[in-house]
């Protein structure tokens, strides 16, 4: 599946888009991740497109990174605040080398720091970002158009899909190769 062909159809109205997606999907037997809707704003889930993988797997797995990195942060916090105090073992103001309250504070902060980093990492990984390559896209999308983007395997299918999109109300159809 190294070579694939893409079709991007641009729609002015949400209604037509909602109408078109299931038909296109059915016609070309597209799996989750082979059809995408490009929009300028977040639409409530499953209005435009049903993506079960996204809903039930990705969005749940997305919290894995913050969680795991949070644990890493926890460990780093304990090691830094508690561990280095233990290694240095200098008496300051009669405080014990492993003092619980300062360790707790540093641990709390580091846990959150790493969780924040984790959430960014998972955003990048699961969102497929960053991707600076030329991809199927049209600047009209940020001006309010909705785009249906699909991935097919052959040139004939591509042409067929382009016709179908136009028939379903797309005012502009773009064809591309290997740029899903």
């Amino acid at each position: 599946m190294n070579n694939h062909y893409t079709v991007l159809g641009l729609y002015k109205k949400m209604e037509t888009t909602v109408n078109a997606t299931p038909q296109i999907r059915e016609a070309f037997n597209l799996k989750d991740g082979e059809i995408e809707v490009l929009t300028s704003a977040a639409y409530p889930d499953e209005i435009l497109i049903e993506d079960k993988t996204l809903m039930y797997q990705v969005n749940k797995r997305q919290f894995l990174f913050p969680f795991l990195l949070g644990i890493v942060g926890l460990a780093i916090g304990i090691l830094l605040a508690g561990g280095t105090g233990w290694i240095m073992n200098l008496d300051v103001g009669g405080k014990p080398p492993f003092a619980l309250p300062p360790t707790g504070i540093i641990t709390y902060e580091f846990t959150l720091l790493f969780a924040v980093i984790g959430s960014v990492i998972s955003l990048l990984i699961y969102g497929g970002l960053p991707n600076w390559t030329e991809r199927a896209y049209d600047p009209d999308i940020t001006d309010g158009s909705l785009g249906i983007l699909i991935k097919v395997n052959s040139n004939e299918e591509q042409n067929k899909a382009a016709d179908m999109m136009a028939n379903l109300g797309a005012y502009k159809v773009k064809k591309g190769k290997n740029d899903f």
């Binding site: 240095m88 200098l90 008496d91 300051v92 103001g93 009669g94 405080k95």
Partner: peptide
């Protein structure tokens, strides 16, 4: 001081209690 307030607040251990 044995329990010197100045020591614990130093961020770089520049002051501490020797033995």
């Amino acid at each position: 001081c044995d329990t010197a307030p100045c020591e614990s607040v130093c961020p770089v251990y520049a002051t501490y209690q020797n033995n």
